[in-house]
Design a protein around this nucleic acid. Structure first.
Length: 227
DNA sequence: AATAATTTCAACCGCACAGGA
DNA sequence: CTCCTGTGCGGTTGAAATTAT
């Protein structure tokens, strides 16, 4: 990676937050070249970014079918359970939560769940040192329990999402898989979809199929492979 | 209203591993 | 076998946003 550092140093490569224009260009080139060979793609696209940076941006933000909304109660419980089994195997945990990235889960764990896990494991003292009462409210929510505002927000979102999609209220205990619903898209996310749609109409023989019922992208190349 | 403290999360970094030359 | 390149993963950083004083 010495090359990368040197290239950043002499101004050949950019670092930091991505611009909308860069996102658009990256999306376009991934559609053309596929989500492999990131170094080559970075060079061919003319983006002043490293291949690694492109890969990360694609996987964590631009990739279709990502959920950008709040982590739901159900997802949170899964994260807690899976972390108990696998530890910090974020990519493995992410594969069990369609639409979520390892980075997102890792961040969520660090900011929300570390304390919960510590409390659960009986390490209340150190958990208390990390954050005060707010952090301890609503932990391990179960039906009938009082909910903290944060958790209640998640739960409401979950209910609303289901109502919007199913046209009727379902209860939390209804057995839905996570991919049964998606939280509302961000405007910017919508634009990314637009770029992809535009490109789809321009290109033939590509794998993007907007009406596909579940995973719109063909990830046969193993992105969603289970270990 | 100002500013200090804290939290969040996108992005980076280093390391390990796989596969090809 | 060794070296090189690309990829994947987990830990860390730091700017921006939010909350507290």
């Amino acid at each position: 990676m010495a090359y990368e550092a040197a290239a950043v140093e002499n101004g050949k490569l950019r670092k930091g937050p991505w611009l909308e224009e860069e996102d658009e260009r990256l999306t376009k080139y991934v559609r053309l070249k596929g989500d492999r060979r990131w170094d080559a793609l970075a060079k061919e696209s003319g983006l002043r970014r490293s291949g690694r940076s492109c890969r990360l941006r694609w996987l964590n933000y631009l990739r279709p079918n990502l959920k950008h909304g709040h982590i739901t109660v159900k997802e949170e419980n899964s994260i807690l359970q899976l972390h108990e089994i696998w530890g910090n195997k974020w990519s493995k945990i992410a594969r069990m939560l369609p639409g979520r990235t390892d980075n997102e889960i890792k961040n969520y764990w660090r900011t929300h769940l570390v304390k919960k896990a510590q409390i659960r494991d009986g390490d209340a003292a150190s958990a208390g040192n990390l954050q005060s009462n707010k952090a301890q409210q609503g932990y391990f929510f179960q039906e009938g329990d009082d909910m903290s505002d944060d958790i209640k927000y998640d739960f409401d979102q979950y209910q609303n999402s289901i109502e919007n999609i199913w046209g009727a209220k379902k209860t939390y205990s209804d057995d839905l898989c996570f991919s049964d619903f998606a939280l509302p898209s961000f405007p910017y996310e919508t634009r990314v979809s637009d770029w992809i749609s535009e490109l789809s109409s321009e290109q033939s023989g590509l794998t993007w199929t907007p009406d596909h019922d579940c995973d719109a992208w063909d990830y046969s190349s193993s992105l969603w492979d289970m270990n």
